[in-house]
Design a protein around this nucleic acid. Structure first.
Length: 448
RNA sequence: GACCCUAUCGUCUAGAGGCCUAGGACACGUCCCUUUCACGGAUGCGACACGGGUUCAAAUCCCGUUAGGGUCACCA
């Protein structure tokens, strides 16, 4: 039975930052790797930012990434576990008690205005970090940090220490931005007569420009990836690779395997830039691997969330279309554009494609020939349709491509798309012929 | 400014003294496959920040320089 206890302690800021998500992930991985306990604590001492929406962003992000916790704050506002409550806003008495203890022992003192300061030892502070190694901080000049404001509310560094102590946290895994403050935390543990937990400071995720990713920045919020239709397993896999590697040149890894191999000492010490290109590639890997039913469910859900109405649509037609467009895309956000030509009979035409394929020399003529042979087409399968078109081209002494392109434009309005014959098969004879007629008429009346 | 951390292809990384004329992945270029676009296959471009040591031998150890990042709140 493992005694490891780790925690993720976000504050509700209105979003789950990609860097926070990665901290949550590494804590979770370590807990699962060691068979320990993963605790979720909400640091909601800032009342102004403490909105229901901000709270929801944390819970939904954790859920989306599949990071379950064994103990801690719950979405309904309750706390589950032996060391609750897990919302800092509900722990004032505990902080007060620890503050009094420090005051009584002379390790803290009160300012004339009522604020309480922690008396920082002037001896060097040593931090033994599981990732960064042993670091010594000289602190002869170190000011005494405030632990209670003049209004009596406790300050972050102090509540953080008290909670980690109270919740019996054994390993604190957090961003490197906290490294320089860690010696203060350790000093507070010692002043309280307790041993500090083990610390592991993970490198930061920087924006492509190489500086800290600010909250407002494009790509900083996990929710953006959810909305754009990334697959959670792909995002999670990508995040695992920022600062950690299995060391064997593989990158697409099952989470179970990451859990097995993950450990603190092998985490990198240097910051990593977020590379959207690589995430996009990674998503493609998972996109191809998704089983059919999961893909349909994902696609329908994503389309629904983006206001694409699928009601009344024939189920087999929809799945047929989803099947053939799948290999063309690797992200949910691309779904609507590829799907639309199949959905609307009054689809729009791509001007360039019309110009190139239909208005070129003999274009309308070939369109007419296509209509004629497909009117006679009996077996409506991709293979047979291909045969007919190839036969037609051969009889005219032309390359099939010369017919394929006008055909695609005539039936869907665009120059690119899935395999033409499969498109035709899925659309069915009736729809195909009526679309070709429409194109012919629009062309004749010079409307396109 | 002080203190702390970091430093391998554009990016993510492998590399813990000889296996390194530095490996993989993304991106990019070329070619092949192909009705388009993707996918896939092949191939190319491309890095040990700099300067000193230590050593028979350094990307790997030490020191300095430079560069980047972080922390110095009665924010979290």
């Amino acid at each position: 039975m493992s005694t490891v206890r780790v925690r993720f302690a976000p504050s509700p800021t209105g979003m789950l930052h990609i860097g926070s998500a990665r901290s949550a992930l590494f804590n979770w991985l370590y807990a699962r790797h060691t068979g320990g306990t993963f605790v979720l604590r909400i640091e909601d001492t800032d009342k102004a930012r403490n909105t229901p929406e901000a709270m929801a962003a944390i819970f939904s992000g954790m859920k989306w990434l599949g990071l379950n916790w064994d103990e801690g704050a719950q979405p309904d506002g309750s706390s589950q576990g032996d060391y609750g409550p897990y919302f800092q806003s509900q722990r004032s008495d505990i902080y007060k008690a620890y503050g009094d203890k420090l005051l009584a022992s002379g390790k803290a003192y009160q300012e004339p205005d009522g604020a309480v300061r922690f008396k920082m030892p002037k001896t060097p502070g040593v931090v033994k970090d599981l990732i960064c190694g042993e670091i010594t901080f000289e602190r002869t000049m170190e000011p005494d940090p405030t632990i209670f404001r003049k209004d009596g509310t406790p300050v972050f560094h102090f509540v953080n220490v008290v909670d980690d102590l109270e919740m019996k946290i054994t390993h604190v895994i957090r961003g490197e931005d906290h490294l320089s403050n860690t010696h203060k935390h350790i000093a507070m543990f010692e002043a309280l007569g307790e041993q500090a937990p083990h610390y592991a400071h993970i490198p930061l995720i920087l924006n492509p420009g190489g500086s800290k990713m600010s909250k407002r920045e494009e790509g900083a919020a996990l929710s953006q990836y959810i909305e754009q239709g990334y697959l959670s397993a792909a995002v999670r896999n990508y995040l695992c690779l920022l600062g950690w590697s299995p060391k064997d040149n593989r990158e697409v890894l099952k989470i179970e395997e990451v859990i097995e191999k993950f450990d603190l000492p092998q985490i990198n010490r240097s910051n990593a830039r977020f590379d959207i290109n690589k995430l996009y590639w990674m998503n493609g890997e998972y996109w191809r691997d998704l089983d059919k039913e999961a893909y349909y469910a994902f696609a329908k859900q994503h389309l629904k969330e983006h206001g694409i109405d699928l009601t009344g649509l024939d189920e087999s037609y929809l799945t047929g279309v989803l099947d053939i467009i799948r290999e063309k895309i690797k992200l949910g956000r691309d779904l609507p554009d590829w799907l639309n030509p199949f959905l609307k009979e009054d689809f729009v035409y791509d001007a360039k494609a019309v110009e190139k394929s239909l208005k070129s020399e003999g274009g309308t003529q070939r369109l007419q020939e296509l209509i004629e042979i497909y009117q006679k087409q009996e077996v409506w399968t991709a293979a047979e349709l291909e045969k007919s078109l190839a036969g037609l081209a051969l009889s005219k002494g032309a390359k099939p491509a010369l017919y394929v392109h006008p055909y695609r434009v005539g039936v869907a309005g665009c120059g690119v798309g899935p395999s033409l014959y499969h498109m035709l098969e899925v659309m069915g004879k009736e729809r195909v012929l009526s679309r070709l007629e429409r194109t012919k008429n629009l062309l004749a009346s010079a409307s396109i």
